[in-house]
Design a protein around this nucleic acid. Structure first.
Length: 268
DNA sequence: AAGCAAAGCAACCGCCGAAGT
DNA sequence: GACTTCGGCGGTTGCTTTGCT
């Protein structure tokens, strides 16, 4: 059924940023009489705004119990943990962070946490290591640099660092490839074998802590010290069979370049 | 100093479910 | 039961600020 757009009947209502005067009017009104019906509030408070806009302004900005300023590390960890359980249920996450609004948390997630996890190679949707092509390409770039270093001056200590990084990346890549092959043995181009377990699919029972609740609390350390398991790529980065096509291309190019295939060697 | 791009954030939009009629 | 109203939520937009060249 849905509902008609808020205040569609009144095209004259003001939109955009709130002025300090409007804020004051809204705060004064709510402090003296309470918000009551949001739809009728603007008229009674002398505001040329729609009720929805007033509610949003109050709940996201003017409420006296709102905590403003930077998120602490504890808050960040809590958000990541809760997101791994609840998914994009911002209001439910906000309920666990006193003084924080769902809008604030959502923005914080989209601007800080999401990028941070992506940089760490963690899929912000599944909270597990990424296997999408972009991420893998970063690893291959790292490998290329390391290979180049070995060719120009194999004894140089600087390049030893590259080599170490390359070993790590290679191992991770190898594991990912192995798992891709294992999960799609019948047809290497088939993605159905990859089981996607999104946070939304995980049932939440009172008192029962889902197994993956602990994932994020130590995923940073996990990412540093051990090779993570494989998960499917996130919806936003999903490239279906193109990922495999890219791999096929890489293998073919590799073979064409040097006779003895470097990638084939790794795979074998 | 100017121009541009990226990041940050407030606010809007449209949908959903609950409650009321 | 059908319909309307309302509050709430998540996704998205677009303006402002910041950082870089």
């Amino acid at each position: 059924m849905g509902r008609s757009p808020c205040c569609a009947d009144d095209a004259n209502v003001k939109k955009g940023p709130w002025t300090p005067d409007e804020d004051q009017r809204l705060v004064d009104y709510i402090n003296t009489t309470g918000h009551g019906s949001w739809r009728s509030l603007p008229k009674q408070a002398g505001l040329n705004r729609c009720g929805k806009s007033c509610r949003l302004r109050w709940t996201n900005y003017l409420r006296p119990d709102i905590k403003r300023g930077k998120f602490s590390e504890e808050e960040e960890k809590l958000i990541i943990n809760l997101h791994s359980i609840l998914g994009n249920k911002w209001s439910r996450i906000a309920a666990h962070l006193p003084g924080r609004t769902h809008n604030e948390i959502k923005n914080f997630w989209n601007t800080h946490v999401r990028r941070k996890l992506l940089n760490l190679g963690i899929d912000p949707y599944t909270h597990k290591p990424r296997t999408d092509l972009d991420h893998l390409l970063n690893i291959t770039q790292l490998l290329c640099v390391a290979q180049l270093g070995n060719l120009t001056n194999p004894l140089d200590t600087v390049f030893k660092l590259h080599a170490d990084a390359a070993q790590l990346a290679e191992a991770q890549l190898l594991q990912n490839l192995m798992q891709i092959m294992n999960t799609s043995q019948r047809n290497p181009y088939q993605l159905e074998g990859l089981v996607e377990q999104t946070p939304q699919n995980i049932p939440i029972h009172a008192g029962a802590v889902p197994q993956n609740q602990q994932i994020l609390s130590n995923s940073f350390e996990q990412n540093e010290n051990q090779l993570p398991g494989l998960v499917s790529i996130s919806p936003e980065t999903a490239q279906d069979s193109s990922t495999y096509e890219a791999w096929e291309k890489l293998l073919m190019e590799d073979e064409a370049d040097g006779g003895a295939s470097y990638w084939k060697e790794i795979l074998e």
